[in-house]
Amino acid sequence: MTDFKAWAADDAARHIRIPDESDDKYSRGVLGVITGSDQYPGAAVLGVEAALRTGVGMVRYLGGERVSSLVLQRRPEAVASEGRVQAWLIGSGTDHANREDAAHALAAVAIAQALPTVLDGGALELHDGATGPVVITPHYGELARVLGVPKDDIVADPAVWAVRASEELGVTVLLKGHRSYVAGGGVALVAASAPNWLATAGAGDALAGILGALVATHTAEIASVETTLARLAASAAVIHGLAAHRASAGGPLTILDLAEAVPGTIAGLLRHG
């Protein structure tokens, strides 16, 4: 059985890139985002919100007119046009069964660019067409779908299945849950910072946005060190959970509350990391 290393706040703090005086919006990282749909437009809003609050120089959002409008209403600093990016976040709030929609057409172009990519939600099955480093972020039911096994099997031993999925699919896996298991690049990590209140709609969309931002700001390290994607994935899970605690203060929270708590959470990690 694989031994999982607990990944904590001090570990996450070492995986946050702090800008310096020579940085501009491009050198700080540009994240391309292809998420959301007419059925689930909020997934795009939440992912973009979380990514921007985690710390990137720019988010480029590509999607349908209605979803783009909602994203820009909430986050006018997002750029709704094509251009150079350092990493991609794809799939939150899209339908895995609908390969004919605009999001999947855009995603097919994106994954051919050999850039580090976070695949979530309806894009998990695109891992086999990706040409760059990939991290997938399924919950238990989604991983069962991708692997073609009963969900109960995943529930019974999520740690084992995270490792097995990474080995079978050839990607880094962030298996979401109260305890999030990360496997890839020869390492196995577990993050357990989330409060029970975080079991709410949209939580995974925010986690994907946080991870997308971390990936976009660490592309050089991803290219040179095989374990980096797994460490960033575990760090995203830690930041996500700690931000939820900060937003919750012991009670219910919404995911916009969580996103708003991310900058303060990161500041706290940097002070004490």
Rank of each mutant, 00 (worst) to 15 (best):
E77V: 12
L232M: 04
L119F: 05
I34H: 07
L242Q: 13
I111L: 14
L256G: 03
E167C: 00
A44G: 07
H104N: 15
K25R: 13
L89V: 04
A267Y: 05
A44D: 08
G148H: 09
P150K: 10
G141W: 02
H245M: 07
K25E: 02
G121I: 07
E142D: 11
A247S: 12
G212D: 00
A208Y: 01
S92V: 06
P195S: 06
G264W: 07
A213T: 09
A237N: 03
V134D: 03
L70R: 15
A244K: 09
A233R: 04
W88F: 06
L253M: 13
V149Y: 08
D3V: 12
A130M: 10
S248A: 14
S27V: 13
A234G: 03
S166V: 02
H218S: 15
A13H: 05
Y40K: 08
R60W: 01
I255L: 13
A162L: 00
D101P: 05
A9I: 02
G264F: 02
P150R: 08
I111A: 07
A244V: 10
T94G: 04
V56F: 02
V109I: 10
P133D: 01
T228N: 01
A97L: 15
I111D: 01
L256M: 14
G177W: 11
W197D: 01
D120R: 04
A191H: 01
D23P: 01
G251I: 00
I255Y: 04
S68M: 11
P150V: 04
V118C: 07
G184M: 10
H104S: 13
D38I: 08
R17A: 14
R84K: 14
A8Y: 05
V215C: 06
R60A: 06
L175V: 04
V238N: 03
K5Q: 12
A230Q: 09
V182Q: 02
S166K: 04
S180P: 05
A97I: 03
R60V: 07
E167T: 12
P252N: 13
M58D: 00
Q73L: 13
A203L: 10
G122Y: 11
D153R: 15
E168K: 12
L70H: 11
A188L: 00
Q39Y: 00
G186R: 11
E167S: 15
E100C: 06
P76K: 08
S166Q: 02
I136T: 02
I255H: 07
A237M: 04
G170E: 08
D10R: 15
K151T: 14
Q86L: 00
G212I: 05
I154T: 06
D257K: 05
A165F: 12
R66N: 13
S37T: 10
F4R: 03
S37Y: 03
V71E: 07
R246V: 14
G132L: 08
D95T: 02
P263W: 10
V149P: 09
T131E: 13
G209S: 05
G264R: 06
S69W: 05
V85C: 08
L269W: 07
G91C: 08
G209V: 09
D38F: 00
L207H: 06
G63Y: 09
L270D: 10
G93P: 04
T94W: 03
Y140H: 15
V225R: 15
R84A: 12
D120K: 09
R179A: 15
W197K: 13
L124D: 04
Q86H: 15
A110C: 06
R246D: 12
R53M: 06
I222W: 02
